[in-house]
């Protein structure tokens, strides 16, 4: 039944679109600040999960630098560089990317590592999460020298770190990523902390 005038049809579509866009824009402006605050809080919380607050006294979330798709949050204590938190993404996961946060002290030793995001198999690869197993704690206190050693890999590859039963790819991806960012930090230290030159 094509009785309606095309113009009237178009007009109705236009009016409905305007009203709905108006509604969405209104809610967007009302929630914008709250959403930004949430994102900021979440970032702070994840940064503090790898670096305790007594190790720095600057605003971490506002002091970052990006090199090669890796984000470095610079920590200072009494105006001297004290540590760095590295947010990076491994593309070697079993299903999708693994995003992780690695805190290193100024000599390149690992303070802590946390997984931010992953889609690894539940029950197998997800043991990289701290709430599923303690595996991630193996990395704490490891030094730059450890990372350069040939045993910085999973046991399956004659290395130092446990793999999980049924999941080798996931831990291998994490181990490789940590070495990658660790060495990257060492090689680009003066670019990240210009005051160390």
């Amino acid at each position: 039944m094509l009785t309606a005038h095309p113009f009237s049809t178009a007009l109705r579509l236009a009016i409905f679109s305007t009203v709905i866009i108006g509604l969405v824009s209104f809610v967007f402006t009302q929630t914008k600040n709250k959403i930004q605050e949430n994102e900021h809080q979440a970032l702070l919380q994840s940064l503090q999960s790898v670096l305790s607050t007594n190790r720095y006294d600057n605003e971490l979330s506002e002091n970052s630098i990006q090199l090669d798709d890796i984000t470095f949050y610079r920590a200072y204590k009494a105006n001297k560089p004290s540590a760095v938190i590295i947010k990076s993404t491994s593309h070697q996961g079993y299903s999708g990317d693994i995003q992780l946060l690695t805190a290193l002290d100024i000599n390149g030793s690992i303070i802590a590592v946390r997984i931010l995001n992953h889609q690894e198999t539940p029950g197998l690869g997800d043991k990289i999460e701290l709430r599923k197993s303690n595996w991630l704690l193996n990395f704490s206190h490891k030094t730059l020298k450890d990372m350069q050693s040939s045993t910085w890999t999973v046991k399956r590859d004659q290395g130092h770190f446990d793999q999980f039963t049924g999941a080798t790819i996931t831990p291998r991806a994490v181990v490789n990523e940590i070495r990658k960012v660790g060495l990257f930090f060492q090689n680009n230290k003066t670019q990240i902390f210009p005051s160390l030159k």
């Binding site: 109705r12 409905f16 969405v24 929630t31």
Partner: peptide, 28 residues
């Protein structure tokens, strides 16, 4: 007020608008 010719795009528009609002509220 919805003519039969345009009901499907309008349904989609209304539903998408509502879901976007819910998403923003949950995000906040």
């Amino acid at each position: 007020t919805i003519q039969p010719e345009i009901r499907l795009p309008l349904f989609v528009l209304i539903i998408a608008g509502i879901v976007t609002v819910i998403e923003l509220l949950m995000h906040a």
